[in-house]
Design a protein around this nucleic acid. Structure first.
Lengths: 110, 110
DNA sequence: TTGATATATGAGCATGAACGCATATAGTTC
DNA sequence: GAACTATATGCGTTCATGCTCATATATCAA
């Protein structure tokens, strides 16, 4: 396994970039956050997020298409749930990094 | 410290989204990858990435503005280096998650 | 000062994504 | 079947961003 330090292929870079792009929208992050405590139907997510039904539905599609959410139909309603919990680790890492950066900035100013 | 499960504020979500957006470009990921083995000047990065000088310079600005890269001038040249090594953890996580997703997809097809 | 090299930046174009509005589809109930 | 609810989607607008080309700035050398 001479893995680990090889440069990534162009296709791999595109995939990674696309994944980051999916996470690069505040509304989608908000939806993911709402789903931290379990699956919810679209209406509930619309209410919690404060977005319009159309917009929330679209963002949910985007998240599901990328494999971050799972979709389950039950009668009239559709329930979404987090399918890839590693995103929470991602967000934690990013938050930490941002906090670090802000701390250094404020130290630099004094 | 009753941290951890609180919903993030709108501003925090925007910051996190912005960080993800910075990472959501293949060329920027390529530049970060080139910088894994230490600081390099712009010309070297232009050569390794295959991009134009103007475009590479802009992407480096973007990465530096967000605190991911540091900038050091030495005579005519400017050297960039990774300032926040946590991004490599991020990329590792994302790669793992993508691999998982692809594996499940291929299993689902058979 | 002039010229040469390394890097940054302004202008313009093209693409893509988010949003709102209206409407379509899927499922239930009568 | 019709009426109703929950969710998805087509369309048009707007805004952000990446790219190229040309040019500006910065630094050094003669």
């Amino acid at each position: 396994m001479e893995d680990s330090v090889k440069p990534m292929s162009d296709e791999a870079l595109e995939l990674v970039a696309k994944r980051f792009a999916v996470l690069a929208e505040p509304m989608r992050l908000r939806l993911l956050q709402s789903l931290m405590d379990g699956e919810k139907n679209v209406n509930a997510l619309v209410a919690e997020s404060g977005g319009t039904q159309a917009n929330v539905s679209r963002h949910l599609q985007t998240l599901a298409r990328d494999g971050l959410l799972s979709r389950r139909r039950e009668g009239l309603q559709v329930f979404y749930a987090v399918a890839d919990k590693s995103i929470f680790n991602l967000c934690t890492l990013v938050c930490g990094s941002i906090r670090e950066g802000l701390k250094k900035q404020s130290e630099a100013i004094g």
